[in-house]
């Protein structure tokens, strides 16, 4: 496989109950490609947290998943409010999510730290008022 296998998803920001659909689909696709289950789990958790973040904070966005021979890259792009202080946002327990999100089981300030924990590389590019792009890489070898 010289060229990457590419999956593209639009994440609907209107409906919290549908959040996670892209991650479920990615998980299925990666299974079909024969990637080991423990690696699929890392990728799906990171992607799921990212997807939830986009729904909570940015009214949705887009997700691009690229599967290379040696790695999987996830690029999550939104046009939300941006992250004012990335260092703070990376701290476990730091959250700017509204209270109603916490009653849904999220917003504990674990999203970004989890995404970092489960991936081998993570880059956050964010401009306040314009949006955020997060690129995550998980090695396959």
């Amino acid at each position: 496989m010289n060229e990457a296998v590419r999956f593209h998803f639009v994440v609907d920001g209107e409906d919290f109950t549908s959040a996670g659909q892209a991650s479920v689909q990615v998980k299925k696709n990666l299974r079909r490609l024969g990637i080991p289950p423990e690696i699929i789990r890392k990728i799906s958790i990171a992607m799921y947290e990212g997807e939830i973040n986009m729904v909570i904070h940015a009214n949705g966005g887009e997700a691009e998943v690229l599967v290379y021979e040696d790695r999987v890259e996830m690029i999550l792009t939104d046009r939300g409010p941006g992250i004012a202080n990335i260092e703070d946002a990376m701290k476990e327990g730091y959250s700017t999510a509204p209270d109603n999100v916490r009653s849904l089981g999220f917003g504990a300030g674990m999203g970004l730290p989890n995404m970092k924990r489960y991936t081998d590389g993570m880059k956050i590019e964010s401009v306040v008022g314009e949006g955020t792009t997060i690129t995550m890489t998980v090695n396959l070898t």
Binding site: F16, T17, S18, A19, G20, I45, Y48, E49, I52, E92, L104, G105, F106, G107, A108, G109, M110, G111, P113, N114, R117
Partner: peptide, 24 residues
């Protein structure tokens, strides 16, 4: 009841007990 914590701390647990009810 906190799904964020389940995603953060759970390793190989096969069963989830929760009082939270939503598709997430």
């Amino acid at each position: 009841d906190m799904m964020s914590d389940v995603l953060a701390y759970v390793k190989d647990q096969a069963v989830l007990l929760t009082g939270l009810v939503n598709p997430q």
